[in-house]
Design a protein around this nucleic acid. Structure first.
Lengths: 73, 73
DNA sequence: ATGTGACTAAAAGTCCGTG
DNA sequence: TCACGGACTTTTAGTCACA
């Protein structure tokens, strides 16, 4: 498990990129997503195998579709 | 929770559609995904809030990208 | 060939903190 | 502002018997 360039790693990198693009701190972003600050950190580090509902929340908070969020993964 | 046309419902419908298009039974498809038949059934019925790794497995088994799988959701 | 309820183990996800 | 840890509760993963 946790092979490098794993889907979770790639997803985390993608979230971090998009979140930073929007000028949000992890904490501010976590608040928008209504997720825990430490949890969002874990997602960005590729440590979290998050479920579909939370993927949806993140996409919504980034104001893009899930499909768009998953692009290139 | 579980509002109609929920993400899980829509995702399940999408999986069912694509799976059926390929002429797989739930059981045959479950075998390809290396998931339990009843688990896949639960996904198609929108009862499972499945996590990213399983979403990836399903996309792979359908031979499409996650982004493609999520299209229209 | 599928729907469903029930179940246990594992993982998701929260909340407290530190450097 | 973020990485990371410990302890905790809730939900998912994965399977079964049965309709």
């Amino acid at each position: 498990m946790a092979k490098k360039a794993d889907i979770l790693i790639r997803f985390g990198e993608r979230v971090r990129e998009l979140r930073a693009e929007r000028g949000y701190s992890q904490e501010a972003f976590a608040h928008i997503c209504e997720l825990d600050r430490t949890y969002v950190g874990g997602i960005e580090r590729g440590e979290r195998n998050l479920a579909l509902r939370n993927i949806e929340r993140i996409a919504e908070s980034l104001d893009i579709s899930i499909s768009e969020l998953m692009k290139g993964l």
